[in-house]
Amino acid sequence: MIKKGKYLLVPMLSLIILSAAPNVYGDSINYDENGQKVYDYAELLSDSEEREITEKLVETSKETKLDLVVVTTNDTQGKSTSLYADDFYDDNGFGYDKKYGDGVLLLIDMEHREVFISTAGDAISRVSDSDVEDILDEIAPFLTNESYMQAVEEFIEGIDDIDDNAFTYLRNPIISLLIALAVAGAAVFIMSMSSKTKVTVGSTTYLEGGRIKLGARIDHFTHTTTTRRKIENDNNHSGSSSVRTSSSGHSHGGGGKSF
């Protein structure tokens, strides 16, 4: 038992140290999880759908620390889709950390048949142009099919996935379990291999004079073969975000797509 305890000491210590970590994070000050998150002016969603979406938005907001809002409209009051989206966000004072702060707004504009994602605060950089493009590409077909509920769900999922990194997979205990098994197996295998003796003689150990005498030495050029390959131009702007300014003077990112 005493021995086992020794092996467990290191993981225990790291557990204690790491469990102190969450205190580092500050809590939100502006986000209201009971506030309205879905503004369905175009009446595209049923009441139960609205409730379900609100629940998911709040859950994902807490996880990503982004204020997530969904708006549908038949009338943009003469504004362009992008300006309507940006102004709607600012006029309602959304933002997870503060007013006009971190958040993402999805606008389904039935007047111009355009879907728009407006990002604000930290979300401008966290959700890059290519992320927005990816999400729009995913949801546009649903909108064309009038599957508004599915489109919104895709949007939430897309935002949820943005901050995913290698560590996200570790939340799955089975993956962590398999990695731990492999690490422990490899470590013990290396330990057991280290007791093997290495060969310390090579091809020069018994070589008289330490070198060979080369007689024939021919390097005869015969021919050349040539291949051409077109260089693919990588126009992937992954990671960058373009920025606009709303009527109230706040910065917004994101983009739209017709459906």
Binding site: K3, K6, Y7, L8, V183, A184, A187
Partner: peptide, 12 residues
């Protein structure tokens, strides 16, 4: 012993 220790530590 080593296998168990390393496994538990890594998993945690």
């Amino acid at each position: 012993g080593w296998f168990g220790g390393i496994f538990a530590g890594t998993f945690a």
